[in-house]
Design a binder for these strands. Structure first.
Length: 881
RNA sequence: GGGCUCGUAGCUCAGUGGGAGAGCGCUCGCCUCACACGCGAGAGGUCACAGGUUCAAAACCUGUCGGGCCCACCA
């Protein structure tokens, strides 16, 4: 081999060069007509003006590994990139910048403001795409899109119109979540719940016409100011304490309004006083009670969460001031029965953490029932599966209880709702945007609201493949080929926001699920398993780590810790460890390139007859590792893949095989070294693309159109599995370790040769003989002899040296009788269990009455025991020979 | 209140019916001609607790205790 590698692996020298070459060579690009079974993944679109954080790094690492693996296994694989306009988030940032100039968006006006946001996008947008490249993401950049580009905007409008036409979108006055800071409505899931220490105030509402404060009822509330909008008091129908009051009227203090006492089963008689003030315009429960009892709904709160004109004397006060003043005023009138501290949860805007205000508002909604039922059915029928499976349950529960989705936002940055009002106030949702003439003629004005960001992202699997609103999934070659996509990979926290909606939209518009599998990764946590957050100061910047340790190291550290659905801790030491692994691999390759003849890379493995014990062992281990990786990849358990390859490369290939290879100069060793390295590189490539590619290119003296990322995945090579070689090699390893320990305990210098006399019976000797050259080499044994005098003494090898002696408990040398007995015992169990399963399945009563799951489980057990019998029988034969 | 999840070596985690493991940290010894980003040897665990199933349990079942997460309309 001509090509020499530098002494240490330097990621910074390699990564950018390789990435540029991959990208410019079109290795990331796929066409619908390409060979192979289709395999598509959409990258969850990051905020267009965002920066890469550690969570993205995990997403990219996992998805890139999936896609690279798919490519190597012969799929027509495509990974689709893009960015999201992130309506409320982006608008908030730009508004904040305006505020620094002392301006609000209203000072600019809608058009100029949107102009500003586009400028902001121009300035900061795309950063994250460059950062994704730093990680090695093999995204098909030719297919990059943006949720607000023209084609996607067409698709959004088309989707809106079709749902409107099908009565799945409606406009109505409903109780919604209002953020008084963002000044917009929010959907239910954009509201977080926070525990706060508040006060529970007990208010007295006297009977109408009575001066006695205690004549009526006492109600409890954490939001006293809302009493200004009360239109009833509710009690439980069976609550005897209040039976006599049902139907009577109370005087609402401060407002001097007459309100009825009503009975509603929703009221919990056990809580508080058992009587509830009802504010239909400002509480979800009260809203429902209000609807049931046809109560008046008085909106007493303004957009900014102050008291409105409807609040009488309190108008203009902030809701918190109003709360204080209301309780104080009631107290002054003897109508405050008490105040106690009370811990409860309040809804806050998930974006700005301002306490949201439930209020009545005219908004657009998606009627979710039909859509949600279809999505739930698809999951229940297994058309879309979850990894881990258990996540399906929560998802289904959520779908089953879903409320209508408020999709209008009082923002400017986003897709403006394609609905117009004429001069008489009539609503129009035309199938095309109205022409200027039409607009003029009817005096049309477009609805000023924009759509929830997730309305456009729900179309992502469709729009990334070119869909613009048509019916069906066959309208573009891309959709025909790649829809449904293979797997949707995301954090479990996004299942409700995004996954559910894609499922609903995909089923509706394309008639089929948008992805076969939902794979949920966990959250990245710090090295102590704590949540990363800015306030803890334990956040990690992935770019720092890439610069310090390389992208492969960061990826590998993340993936090694990643078990599907489990949170993954990450600490700098882990990344450092992964960097060391990359370097280890690099240096193993340097060794291989040094000793291997330059022709061996193309020659394949030598005939069986030329292989030594260690050759047969490492080839057997290699295929075992390959099998583990293949198995783990069926559920994309990348943590298992990482651990298996790491162990193989470091502990088996480097620590044992390479050490033994050093003393050999036959042709076989070079060929095996190269072959094993080549397969290991391919197994590892999806996880560590850069270092593996760089080594592979040197190993194969590859030209510029040959790339590991398009090389074939290692095929099963079960013929190389060699149980005999593995147990003989295990004997070697244990003997060597024992001798090294002896050396360490006796403080012998490495240079000193050991003289060994080993006691061994015939069976032990048979196992040991083939391993002897290796043992002598690795343990530094000069003379080795077997003592024949003690062959009957016992099962253990016994080694003496210069008067000291030790015993070597060698695998394969242990008590053969006991081993035999163990196998026989297990075989007996296996046979018995197999027969039991067979009987059970043959029993018609069992089959007829047993639930399908039970029958299935019995069948599986049968297969398991049959496998066990095969395995044990194999072991028995081996032992016999 | 409901659901999910975790409790294994000092730390972070794999393991899910027959052997208790990894990385980091720790101790001792090595610049051995791929690698000191390294090599070798070692210490360290009643696998949360209590019952049960099994010839056999860290693993399966039941319960208890303790962490975490999600959902929910207790004013």
């Amino acid at each position: 081999m001509k090509r020499e590698l530098p002494k240490g692996y330097e990621p910074s020298e390699v990564e950018d060069r390789l990435y540029a070459w991959w990208e410019s060579s079109g290795f990331f690009h796929a066409e619908p007509g390409d060979d192979g079974e289709p395999f598509a993944v959409v990258l969850p679109p990051p905020n267009v003006t965002g920066n890469l954080h550690i969570g993205h790094a995990l997403v990219v690492s996992v998805e890139d590994a999936m896609v690279r693996h798919a490519r190597m296994t012969g799929h027509n694989a495509v990974w689709l990139p893009g960015t999201d306009h992130a309506g409320i988030a982006t608008q908030t940032v730009v508004e904040r910048r305006l505020a620094e100039e002392g301006l609000t968006r209203h000072d600019l006006g809608r058009e100029a403001f949107i102009e500003r946001v586009w400028e902001h996008v121009g300035e900061y947008g795309g950063t994250i795409l460059r950062q994704e490249r730093k990680l090695g993401a093999s995204l098909d950049w030719d297919r990059e899109i943006f949720t607000l580009d023209e084609t996607r905007s067409e698709a959004v409008k088309a989707a809106f119109r079709r749902w409107y036409a099908d009565d799945l979108i409606y406009r109505g006055l409903r109780l919604i979540n209002w953020c008084p800071r963002c000044l917009t409505a929010l959907s239910d899931i954009e509201v977080d719940h926070q525990e706060v220490d508040g006060e529970l105030a007990y208010l007295r509402y006297p009977l109408m016409g009575s001066d006695d404060p205690e004549s009526g009822v006492t109600v409890a509330t954490t939001r006293a100011e809302t009493m200004l909008g009360d239109t009833a008091v509710a009690v439980h129908p069976d609550d005897e304490r209040y039976a006599h009051l049902i139907g009577r009227s109370l005087r609402l203090p401060l407002m001097d309004r007459e309100i009825p006492v009503i009975a509603d089963a929703h009221v919990d008689a056990e809580f508080g006083t058992g009587a509830v003030k009802v504010t239909p315009a400002h509480d979800p429960n009260d809203y429902e009670i209000g609807q049931r009892h046809d109560l008046a709904m008085i909106d007493i709160i303004t957009n900014e969460a102050a008291i409105s004109e409807a609040g009488g004397a309190y108008a203009g006060l902030d809701r918190v001031e109003a709360r204080r003043k209301v309780t104080a005023d009631l107290d002054a009138q003897g109508l405050l029965a008490g105040v106690e501290s009370h811990r409860h949860s309040v809804g806050v805007c998930s974006r700005c953490k301002t306490v949201i205000e439930p209020r009545l508002s005219e908004q657009w909604f998606v009627a979710v029932r039909r859509l949600a039922d279809a999505a739930a059915a698809a999951v229940r029928e297994g058309r879309t599966g979850f990894v881990p499976e258990r996540n399906a349950k929560g998802f289904l529960d959520w779908l089953d209880n879903l409320h209508d989705w408020c999709i209008s936002r009082q923002l400017w940055w986003g897709h403006q709702i394609p609905a117009w009002y004429d001069r008489d106030g009539n609503l129009h949702v035309p199938s095309d945007d109205p022409s200027p003439e039409e607009t003029e003629r009817l005096g049309l004005t477009q609805d000023p609201d924009v759509l929830d960001t997730w309305f456009s992202s729900q179309l992502w699997p469709l729009t990334t493949l070119g869909w613009t609103g048509e019916d069906g999934a066959d309208v573009t070659p891309e959709l025909r080929t790649w829809y449904p996509t293979a797997v949707l990979e995301t954090g479990y926290d996004i299942n409700t926001f995004w996954v559910s909606r894609m499922l609903m939209a995909g089923l509706y518009f394309a008639g089929e699920v948008p992805f076969r599998t939902v794979y949920n990764h966990g959250m990245v946590r710090d090295g102590q398993g704590k949540k990363m957050s800015k306030s803890f100061g334990n956040t990690i910047d992935p770019l720092d780590f890439i610069e310090k340790y390389g992208a492969d190291a960061l990826r590998f550290a993340l993936l090694r810790a990643a078990t599907p659905g489990q949170d993954a801790p990450l600490a700098e030491e882990w990344v450092e460890g992964a960097r060391r692994f990359a370097n280890k691999l690099w240096n193993a390759a340097r060794f291989v390139l040094m000793v291997a003849d330059e022709t061996v890379a193309t020659q394949g493995l030598p005939p069986e007859g030329l292989l030594e014990l260690e050759d047969r062992w490492i080839l057997s281990r290699l295929d075992a590792t390959r099998a583990t990786v293949d198995d783990a990849m069926t559920t994309w358990d990348l943590g298992r893949v990482a651990r298996a390859v790491y162990h193989f490369v470091w502990d088996e290939y480097c620590d044992w095989y390479l050490e033994l290879a050093k003393q050999r100069d036959d042709e076989a060793v070079g060929a095996v070294l190269v072959h094993v390295l080549d397969v290991a590189l391919r197994l590892l490539h999806p996880l560590m693309p850069f270092v593996t590619e760089e080594i592979w290119r040197a190993l194969h003296q590859a030209s510029d159109d040959e790339t590991l990322m398009r090389a074939s995945w290692p095929a099963p090579d079960v013929a190389r599995r060699d149980q005999a070689a593995e147990s003989q090699f295990a004997a070697l390893q244990e003997a060597v370790t024992e001798l090294r320990r002896f050396r360490a305990e006796h403080r012998l210098s490495p240079a000193e040769r050991l003289t060994v006399t080993a006691d061994a019976d015939a069976a032990s000797r048979a196992v040991l003989e083939p391993a002897l050259p290796g043992i002598r080499q690795l343990a530094g044994v000069g003379e080795w002899s077997f003592s024949t005098s003690a062959t009957d003494e016992g099962p253990q090898g016994k080694v003496s040296m210069k008067g000291a002696e030790l015993f070597i408990p060698l695998t394969g040398l242990v008590d053969l009788d006991e081993e035999r007995a163990r196998i026989e015992r297990e075989l007996a169990t296996a046979h018995a269990e197999r027969e039991r399963a067979e009987r059970k399945l043959a029993n018609t009563g069992f089959v007829q009455k047993a639930p399908e799951a039970l029958v299935q489980s019995e069948r599986e057990k049968l297969v398991e025991w049959q496998t066990a019998i095969a395995r044990l029988s194999g072991q028995r034969e081996e032992l016999a020979s």
